[in-house]
Simulated scan of single mutants.
Amino acid sequence: MIETVAEIDSTNAALLARLGRGEVIDEGAWLVADRQTAGRGRAGRVWSDGYGNFMGSTVAQLRATDPLPQSLALVAGLAVHGVVQECAPGLTDCLLKWPNDLLVSGAKLAGILLERHADAVVVGIGVNLSFAPDVPDRATVSLARLGHGTARDVFAERLAAHWQAVLTRWHCGEWPALRQEWLLRAHPVGTQVSVKDPSHGTVSGAFAGIDDNGVALLRLADGSMRAIHAGDLDLVGG
């Protein structure tokens, strides 16, 4: 159920267009591209089209009994973390960063982008398998550079299996357990972070975990707690 195309503007955009035309996209179906000409990440960032990297999207169909859709970013992070550990056994300092990045020793290895259409969420995932793009003000790394070269199609099959496993658990009411698993794989509580808050500018504090809905919590210098619903956390000094 993995459809591969040589070149496309964006796998996320393509699936959103199909949903907009009323097409039914079953869970477990993936669209994977060799190259993207207009890939994107969160906040309009460019999503590298490096050949040999994984660039793909899938769909989660929302049900009335599901947790909040925003938690799917964290669930997807668990799937990516799991498959990276499978492809690169023994890889150390591999941590999830709220809400959508996978870092190795502080350098970005993978990113996730969620976009919603009606009762469907398109989940886009990019992983640097063979090529680490140059990104301004952000360190990047690839599995190949870390000594764990992995073929794109092998990675795709393994990721699809990991994603299906965690998505099934999410649908079946296991979000509390998945939340705890995410915390065990994330930057530790107490890590100094900053976030650009649309209302208050840049806010810095200590990461204090995530709440029951997957919202990031920051403990500020005055001891108060602030919930971060949107934006990207940056590790201070990382």
Rank of each mutant, 00 (worst) to 15 (best):
H148V: 03
G205L: 07
L217Y: 05
T168E: 06
S204V: 11
L143S: 04
V135N: 01
A186G: 13
H187P: 03
R219M: 13
L159F: 14
G147L: 11
H187K: 05
S224E: 10
C172N: 15
L183Y: 05
T191P: 10
F155V: 05
A161R: 12
S142T: 00
G190A: 08
D234A: 13
G205I: 06
I228K: 01
H171E: 15
V135W: 04
T202M: 13
V195N: 14
R145G: 03
S130D: 03
R145E: 10
V236G: 08
L218D: 04
A139D: 06
R152T: 05
T150I: 10
S199I: 01
H200Y: 04
I228D: 00
Q164A: 14
S194M: 12
Q192G: 10
G126S: 07
L143F: 02
A206P: 07
T140D: 01
L167V: 09
D137A: 12
A186D: 12
A160G: 08
V141K: 05
D134M: 11
L129P: 08
V215P: 01
A230F: 01
F207R: 06
L217T: 05
A177H: 08
A144W: 02
T168R: 09
A221K: 09
R226I: 08
V203H: 01
G149Q: 04
R152S: 01
V141P: 02
A221F: 01
D153H: 14
S199V: 09
H148G: 00
A206T: 15
A156F: 04
H229A: 07
S142M: 00
N128K: 01
G149L: 05
A139H: 11
V203D: 03
T191I: 12
A177M: 10
A216N: 12
V166S: 06
H200E: 06
V193A: 03
R152W: 08
A151W: 12
L218Y: 04
R169Y: 06
H171W: 13
I228S: 02
L183C: 15
G173F: 02
V215N: 05
G214Y: 03
R169T: 03
G223L: 03
V166N: 05
